[in-house]
Simulated assay, not measured.
Amino acid sequence: MRWELSEEQADFRTVLAEWLADRCGPSEVRGWLDAGDPSAFEDRFMAEGWFAVGSPEDLGGQGGGLVELALAAEELGRRTAPAAGWLGSMLAVPALAAAPEEAKALFADGVVTVLAAPAGSVPTARATVSDDGSSVSGTVSGVLGADRARRLLVPVQGERSDGGESEGRHGIAFVLVDADAPGVAIRRRELTDRSRSVADVVLDGARGTPVAGDAEQHLEDAALRSAVLVAADALGAAERMLDMSVEYAGQRKQFGATIGSFQAVKHAAAEMLVTVESARSIVYLAAASVEAGHPDAPAHAAAAKAQVTARAAHAADDALTLHGAIGYTWEHDLQLSYKRAKLDEALFGTPAAWNERLAVSLDLVP
């Protein structure tokens, strides 16, 4: 499968990169992280239309698809932008597409609807929340962006008796729950990567609105989207760390020469460059494959998540080594991208988990 960015997609990436460079610089990011409140960025990101790019127009989006979302994730990762709510919402889109009226609210001002799935594992067709037909109860641990959400798209186990399309259906289904409704508690957890957030969602007799559609298939779609978008985020972080390392190697001197002239440093930087360029090819292909519903899309997405995030995490270690002791300090911007890449490696499934999915999908034995 051969594929490359269209002229419009390349232009989109350039315009978004310029927008983020003006509005999401290191000093702004540090201010949001120190305050523990990224709402200034999130509100502007939504108000100026970027939040809705990559989602169908009939759902209230700006058009485009997963390739545009991957390009956005790459640039957000490069800038260490606080985008937990955005990513959690993009994973909810496949399920919300089955309920267009609900989905349109996803792109209304101030409304963020995130998928209530544990961020520490691959999204799968299982639920820790029970549905007795009139209310839902249970806990979902470590939901990405739950503290930024106005609504939660919750996978539930049980049987509906609401007279709707889900009447009498057992197994996994989706329910929309308002984050501030009675019986809903959002308990935020602290992450080392403070540019993103997770929270435990505790439901105790909360009321929800059923969402029609094949929940198991929507969760699989969300899993593939998570693989592509987290890999794209890791690509952006790796690009930023490469740029910082090359710049630092051209300034730092030892024994009367810049360290960039040392062979070991050149080799390390070259390896980081190979990581970035190969990752870009993998991520873009996986995004296009999943968007097109290619038969090999699950394998492409799994390879992207496993290979790109693992190599980006390794590149983070190389970047830290090249920076020496200064790279460990809070004052240096490297630590922002370093933590971003390290979280991406584990976010929505480790490389080992995605390699296992890849192995299962391949016909290795006659």
Rank of each mutant, 00 (worst) to 15 (best):
A40W: 01
A40L: 10
E42V: 09
E42Y: 04
E42D: 14
E42H: 06
D43H: 13
M46I: 09
M46S: 11
A47V: 08
G49K: 12
G49M: 07
F51C: 04
A52S: 12
A52D: 11
V53T: 11
G54D: 08
S55D: 15
P56K: 02
E57H: 12
D58T: 13
G60V: 12
G61C: 08
G64A: 06
G64V: 04
G64W: 04
G64C: 09
G64D: 12
L66T: 01
L66C: 05
L66Y: 03
V67T: 11
V67A: 07
E68N: 08
L69A: 14
A70G: 06
L71R: 04
L71S: 08
A72H: 01
A72V: 06
A73F: 02
A73H: 07
A73Q: 14
L76D: 02
G77Q: 09
R79N: 12
T80W: 04
A81C: 14
P82V: 08
A83V: 06
G85S: 06
S89T: 15
M90H: 08
L91N: 11
L91F: 11
V93T: 05
V93S: 02
P94V: 10
A95S: 04
A95Q: 02
A95Y: 01
L96S: 04
A97N: 00
A99T: 15
P100G: 13
P100I: 09
E101I: 06
E102A: 10
E102R: 09
E102P: 00
K104D: 03
A105R: 15
A108P: 00
D109Q: 11
D109G: 05
G110V: 07
G110P: 05
V111F: 00
T113Q: 03
T113E: 09
T113P: 06
L115A: 05
L115F: 10
A116D: 05
A117N: 05
A117F: 13
A117V: 15
P118E: 14
P118Q: 00
V122T: 09
V122P: 03
P123C: 11
T124R: 13
T124D: 15
A125K: 05
R126P: 07
A127E: 01
A127F: 01
V129F: 00
D131W: 13
D131F: 10
D131H: 15
D131N: 15
D132I: 00
G133L: 13
V136E: 08
V136N: 03
G138W: 10
T139P: 05
T139A: 07
S141D: 14
G142H: 13
V143Y: 13
D147S: 15
R148V: 07
R148Y: 15
R150A: 15
R151D: 07
L152Y: 06
L153R: 04
V154Y: 01
V154A: 08
P155N: 00
P155I: 09
V156T: 11
Q157H: 08
G158F: 03
G158K: 03
G158Q: 01
E159Y: 02
E159Q: 13
R160L: 15
S161Y: 14
D162I: 02
D162S: 14
D162M: 00
D162H: 07
G163S: 04
G164F: 11
G164L: 13
E165N: 15
E167L: 10
G168C: 12
G168P: 06
R169A: 14
R169P: 04
R169T: 10
H170R: 14
H170T: 15
I172Y: 02
V175L: 14
